[in-house]
């Protein structure tokens, strides 16, 4: 793990020194991916758009984590911390979405206007 990596370099401190090549490669990849994600919005792919946008963002994030943030060279427990925090956010999203979307049809959608403006009856389409 960590030990092995410290030894690969002839450097006498703690931690790992990341190669310039890697740093610059990651930088280039990040910029290219940013350009890509902007360009891709020009095509209307329906629901695929958000999937692609989030996919690209995830790839970018992974690159930053692995190399800029040294996770690739680090003790694996640090990665576990990161991954589990993201996992818990996903659990949070998932369960609340399951619930909120289930009772959504029961909610009067034009509630605000119907409350605020008696001149607007509920059934009038906007």
């Amino acid at each position: 793990m960590n030990e092995g990596n410290t030894h690969n370099n002839e450097h006498h401190g703690v931690g790992h020194i990341v190669d310039w090549k890697v740093l610059i490669g990651v930088l280039t990849a990040l910029l290219v991916l940013t350009y890509l994600t902007v360009k891709v919005t020009e095509f209307d792919l329906g629901p695929l758009n958000i999937v692609i946008a989030l996919g690209i963002a995830t790839v970018k994030a992974t690159l930053v984590c692995l190399f800029f943030m040294h996770l690739y060279y680090d003790q694996p427990f640090n990665s576990l911390v990161l991954v589990s925090s993201v996992l818990f956010v996903l659990v949070f999203i998932l369960f609340s979405l399951i619930d909120l979307s289930a009772y959504q049809p029961d909610i009067i959608q034009d509630y605000i206007s119907s409350m605020r403006d008696p001149a607007y009856p509920l059934d009038e389409p906007q």
Partner: peptide, 18 residues
């Protein structure tokens, strides 16, 4: 880097819709 990471997600989610 974390500040950067968050932005990496905020950008497509807020600016690049449809």
């Amino acid at each position: 880097h974390l500040v950067d990471l968050i932005w990496i997600f905020l950008f497509p989610l807020l600016y690049l819709i449809d």
